[in-house]
């Protein structure tokens, strides 16, 4: 359980050193993207258009933040992670095409994303769900917002973070998935629980 302080852009070499259960504090640039943001980014790619920002080596944050506009600039009020499994259909392509090195979210991801993380070199950092004020505290500046027509939660927010964390490495580049490890254990307890509850 090592502790890393990383800055973006993160290199593939460094990301491949991380193991599940490690803790990461991240500084630099991260962008938010939820379902609609992922869909639009992939559509942009298919149409041969440039993304508003080069994502190479950055982290994508599964988050629909609560923002407030004050004197033309945006302030983060609350910005915890959203459920990552919703992005499962797109994340493998996202990792492959845009070379992001870290995905920040909650609840973990499925096989497709885990395989892409292994193949192209990215990790999943779990941030405590709902700990939105703690997250906001680590976000030092809103660098920009793109695709605001998608609405506040779905827009792509470009954020500057400092020591954002602790992020628990829950999926690493070696194919380990902490959520799957827990789930396997949970499944093993199922029969015992049924028995205890007198379930036929």
């Amino acid at each position: 359980m090592a502790v890393y302080r990383l800055s973006t852009p993160i290199s593939e070499e460094i990301v491949r050193k991380l193991q599940v259960n490690d803790k990461v504090y991240l500084s630099g640039t991260i962008v938010t993207a939820r379902d609609a943001g992922h869909r639009r980014a992939l559509r942009f790619h298919n149409e041969g258009r440039q993304l508003p920002i080069n994502l190479d080596g950055l982290a994508v944050f599964h988050c629909g933040p609560l923002m407030r506009q004050e004197n033309k600039s945006w302030r983060v009020v609350a910005a915890g992670p959203t459920t990552s499994s919703r992005m499962e259909p797109f994340e493998d392509q996202f990792i492959k095409l845009f070379k992001i090195r870290m995905i920040i979210g909650k609840g973990g991801m499925g096989k497709k994303a885990v395989n892409a993380m292994k193949k192209y070199g990215a990790v999943y950092g779990a941030f405590t769900g709902g700990a939105a004020v703690l997250a906001a505290k680590a976000i030092k500046r809103v660098k920009g917002v793109e695709w605001s027509d998608l609405g506040m939660p779905e827009a792509m927010w470009i954020l500057e973070v400092e020591d954002f964390g602790p992020l628990t490495v829950a999926i690493d580049t070696h194919g380990n998935n902490l959520f799957e490890i827990i789930q396997t254990k949970v499944d093993k307890t199922k029969e015992q629980i049924y028995k205890k509850l007198g379930i036929k």
Partner: peptide, 13 residues
């Protein structure tokens, strides 16, 4: 922190 700063505890209000 949310209580002290009177900020919504989760971004999903």
């Amino acid at each position: 922190l949310a209580e002290k700063t009177c900020a919504p505890m989760c971004q999903d209000t």
